[in-house]
Computed example of a mutant assay.
Amino acid sequence: MSTVKGTYVRSQQNWAVEQERQRHNQALYMMGENTLFCLMWTARDYDQGLVGLCTVCASDRVSQAYGQASRNKCPSCFGTRFEGGYRALIVRPAIFTDADDGQSFTARGVVAPQEVALETTSDFRVHGGDYAMRATGERLQLRSPQRTTLRTGFGTPHQAEDATAYNLARAGVEDSTSVAYTIPPATAPLVTILTRSGATPVSFDDIEVIRAPLIPLYERD
């Protein structure tokens, strides 16, 4: 009796990655909603020389001593301590789960947290502390994302080449007093932007701001 052996494929099959990405993106554009993602500067960006310290709140003695912004609601850096606050404002389709209202006791008193899960495209990288802004006017702070890559051979998968749905994350709805609501645009213009209609997909080039690579070079693995 003969034995059927599997086929050994050493080289990466790029077509498999591309097809899987297209399926994910098609579902996102068909079923998702336009969402404005605000990607904040991080300490690693500063270490790489991509951004400087905030000229408003990062030069006083408190900030220099503790290595953090002296004001959470700084109008220049939005509490990040880095110049400009964010490295990118981009619009991407995203699918959100439903959120249930509830209450919990914390050090700040009784709060009503709402946490959802979301999925968006894999062409950018989110970090814990970034924000997602919805057409409902809500602003959510993102938690650390999960990684979903497609293995097509024996090599190590990397986000830029193999990710199909990297940005799977949980997010919590921010209170209206949060610093997130000081980040432009304001609520009314935000709703107008995200409810645009016309071409498919709608262009948002006029409002997007990209100050650094959407997938930093030091995080491409």
Rank of each mutant, 00 (worst) to 15 (best):
Thr152Lys: 00
Thr152Leu: 01
Thr152Cys: 13
Thr152Tyr: 00
Gly153Glu: 03
Gly153Gln: 02
Gly153Ile: 04
Phe154Gly: 12
Phe154Val: 02
Phe154Tyr: 03
Gly155Ile: 03
Gly155Gln: 10
Thr156Ser: 08
Thr156Ile: 14
Thr156Trp: 01
Pro157Trp: 02
Pro157Glu: 02
His158Arg: 14
Gln159Thr: 05
Gln159Pro: 00
Ala160Trp: 03
Glu161His: 03
Glu161Asn: 08
Glu161Lys: 09
Asp162Phe: 04
Ala163Lys: 02
Ala163Met: 05
Thr164Pro: 05
Thr164Gln: 00
Thr164Glu: 01
Thr164Trp: 00
Thr164Val: 15
Thr164Met: 05
Ala165Asn: 08
Ala165Leu: 15
Ala165Asp: 03
Tyr166Trp: 11
Asn167Met: 09
Asn167Ser: 12
Asn167Lys: 08
Leu168Gly: 00
Leu168Lys: 01
Leu168Asp: 00
Leu168Thr: 01
Leu168Ala: 04
Leu168Gln: 03
Ala169Ser: 12
Ala169Phe: 09
Arg170Gln: 12
Arg170Glu: 08
Arg170Thr: 12
Arg170Trp: 11
Arg170Pro: 04
Ala171Gly: 07
Ala171Asp: 04
Ala171Thr: 01
Gly172Gln: 11
Gly172Phe: 06
Gly172Asp: 04
Gly172Thr: 11
Gly172Ser: 13
Val173Tyr: 01
Val173Leu: 13
Glu174Tyr: 02
Glu174His: 02
Asp175Tyr: 05
Asp175Ala: 14
Asp175Met: 10
Asp175Gln: 04
Ser176Trp: 05
Ser176Val: 14
Ser176Met: 13
Ser176Tyr: 07
Thr177Ser: 09
Ser178Gln: 11
Ser178Tyr: 07
Ser178Val: 09
Ser178Thr: 13
Val179Gln: 04
Val179Ile: 14
Val179His: 03
Val179Pro: 02
Ala180Thr: 04
Ala180Pro: 08
Ala180Arg: 02
Tyr181Leu: 09
Tyr181Lys: 06
Thr182Cys: 14
Thr182Lys: 12
Thr182Val: 13
Thr182Glu: 14
Thr182Pro: 05
Ile183Glu: 02
Ile183Tyr: 03
Ile183Cys: 09
Ile183Met: 10
Pro184Asp: 13
Pro185Lys: 04
Pro185Arg: 05
Ala186Ser: 15
Ala186Met: 13
Ala186Val: 10
Ala186Phe: 11
Thr187Phe: 07
Thr187Cys: 15
Thr187Glu: 15
Ala188Phe: 05
Ala188Met: 13
Ala188Tyr: 06
Ala188Trp: 02
Ala188Thr: 09
Ala188Asn: 07
Pro189Trp: 11
Pro189Val: 11
Pro189Phe: 12
Pro189His: 07
Leu190Phe: 15
Leu190Met: 15
Val191Leu: 15
Val191Gln: 14
Val191Tyr: 07
Thr192Leu: 15
Ile193Phe: 15
Ile193Cys: 14
Leu194Thr: 00
Leu194Lys: 02
Leu194Met: 12
Leu194Cys: 10
Leu194Pro: 05
Leu194Ser: 05
Leu194Trp: 01
Thr195Val: 12
Arg196Lys: 07
Arg196Tyr: 01
Arg196Glu: 02
Arg196Trp: 03
Arg196Leu: 07
Arg196Val: 02
Arg196Ser: 08
